[in-house]
């Protein structure tokens, strides 16, 4: 689950992560403003037809997205049972009210979760944290100290796994590994946090020792390019959203979430 460091090279993987982020924004914002099955369904259909070109491969695709496929229907069920009732009531029990309206909302919610979450999981699966940091600092001009600090923190995810293993051994060697499972887990999790903060403190010194945070301009060894391909990706995100929204408006199902309900 934590394999965000291993990125298989592909055309999509090489696109600037900032473009992926912007494409997701362009796609998500219009979709989240409405709650209707048509816009979400249309967007989802287009997205599904594009996923094979995302450079993920089916195995990785399922490994990354299974959780979304599992949770989207669950979210739908919640709304079906407790969502705002309208129209014909099919069943009623305590606070549960399954109605025509709540079923429609449920379907819309489920499709919306899929349409919003899937492309983002798929696009971000090919983001390399270092490239992302380069992009954030060079393209979006976020402050370098924070971007690189964050990147250093992110790199520690890889170390967490090793550290956890080392901690397990350490506690075993010191005779304190025989406790109950939950206590042991919590103890280890706390120890891991302590260890990482200590690591972070040391790393900060190491970064300063190499001139990090020095006054004066900083340069970037890797150029973060934002070219034609990147613009096209953003445009693609916006287009999918536009098609979906148009379809919803034409079908008369556009349902603005902030509007009167």
């Amino acid at each position: 689950m934590i394999d965000i460091q291993t990125v298989v090279p592909s055309r999509v993987a090489r696109l600037n992560p900032v473009a992926k982020l912007l494409a997701i924004v362009a796609l998500t914002v219009p979709l989240v403003l409405t709650l209707d099955a048509v816009s979400a369904g249309v967007a989802l259909a287009i997205e599904l037809s594009l996923f094979p070109f995302a450079g993920l491969g089916w195995r990785r695709f399922w490994r990354r997205t299974w959780i979304v496929w599992l949770l989207a229907p669950l979210t739908g069920v919640t709304i079906a049972l407790y969502g705002q009732a309208s129209g014909q009531i099919y069943a009623e029990w305590f606070v549960v009210r399954i109605s025509e309206g709540s079923l429609a909302l449920a379907l819309a919610t489920m499709l919306r979760v899929l349409a919003i979450a899937l492309p983002s999981v798929v696009l971000f699966a090919t983001v390399d944290p270092t490239d992302l940091a380069d992009g954030l600092a060079q393209v979006l001009r976020l402050p370098a100290r924070f971007v690189l600090g964050g990147l250093a923190g992110l790199r520690m995810i890889g170390l967490f796994v090793d550290d956890w293993r080392a901690l397990e051994l350490a506690r075993r060697s010191r005779g304190v590994a025989d406790r109950g499972r939950i206590r042991r887990f919590l103890g280890m999790a706390f120890a891991l946090l302590v260890l990482s903060i200590r690591r972070g403190t040391k790393l900060a010194v190491a970064m300063e020792a190499r001139g990090f945070g020095a006054p004066g301009p900083r340069t970037w060894a890797r150029e973060s390019r934002f070219g034609m391909a990147e613009w096209l990706l953003v445009l693609l995100g916006a287009t999918i959203a536009a098609v979906a929204v148009t379809a919803a408006v034409l079908a008369g199902s556009w349902n603005f979430i902030l509007g009167p309900s």
């Binding site: 934590i2 964050g150 403190t201 900060a204 970064m207």
Partner: peptide
């Protein structure tokens, strides 16, 4: 913000992110 503030805040953020992932 000192450098150590940034790095440790990042470590805390990332560690919390792992808890987010588990809780998701």
């Amino acid at each position: 913000w000192r450098i150590v503030d940034i790095v440790v805040a990042s470590v805390i953020g990332v560690a919390s992110g792992l808890i987010f992932l588990a809780w998701n």
